[in-house]
Amino acid sequence: MTSSATIPAAGTPAATPPQRNGKPRRSERARAEARLGWWLAGPAFVIMLAVTLYPILQALYDSLFRYRLTAPGDREMVWFGNYAVILGDSVFWSALLVTVVITVITVLIELVLGFALALVMHRALTQLRGLLRTAILVPYGIITVVSAFAWFYMFDITSGFVNSWFSWVPGIDADLNWFASQGTSLFVIIASEVWKTTPFISLLLLAGLAQVSGDLEEAAAVDGASWWQRLWRVVIPNMKAAIMVAVLFRALDAFRIFDNVFIMTNGANGTEVLSLLAYRTSIGRLEIGMGSAISVLLFLCVILICFIAIKLFKVDLSSARGGS
């Protein structure tokens, strides 16, 4: 759907400037290089347009129709009628709210946890480092659907063990049905999301940590800065770009959450998220028009997040790997 389109799309502007912004008079060699560049990048560029731009435009077009797959004869143009229905319906707004809540909470927890893990990986003894990184990365290597099932069965009232293991915690007993109310369902969904994707954020942060020059830290230590001061005043400001890229990537990812909710509650008890709503409308109900409109709105939300991150927080995507 629109989801896979966003990340590559962010990369396209970077590919074009060398060609377009070139000076009017270029040497033969520069032109040959530009040509070679196009030959090398061209096929990938064409394929990307075919698999991202085309479906996006198709979805935009479809979203203007009232169109049900099993009633092809009744297809009619309603212009922005689908958008009016969606934006006027509480189902959409509650799905948006739940999505935002999940995104904000998971990204915050993951940022703190991921940073701690990155520090551990960064400082760990060299002999342990490889093993430690592998161990931390294991959850990220597990397929989301599989991890969602694992967490679901852990907490499920008939087959789960959480209720008996944690019965000493106030509020948890054998009769607690985690997936029967909004708060507890969201707790499990967020916990499994955090467990699964913290390694990703910690890897990005580790790359940022590695960029911070040891000289700076040493200089600060000589000046008498405590560990906390060095972290807060030296390390973090110097890796701000890496942190912002990590937050942006994870926020975009978390915003499109689908698997966990689909497996655990399928949207019951007020846990419906935007991707699930789009899926259920266009795939489940076969309402291509309405579903496309929801997908377009989801796409716009994702663009908005990118825009906020890049323009307001000045995230420089190219600096993540030590550009500036």
């Binding site: 499920d156 009232i157 008939t158 009769d175 607690l176 049905n177 997936f179 029967a180 019951a268 008890n269």
Partner: peptide
């Protein structure tokens, strides 16, 4: 219904 009712399918 018991506490499992809101999530009970045929297998449950």
């Amino acid at each position: 219904g018991g506490p499992g009712l809101p999530t009970a399918n045929e297998n449950a």
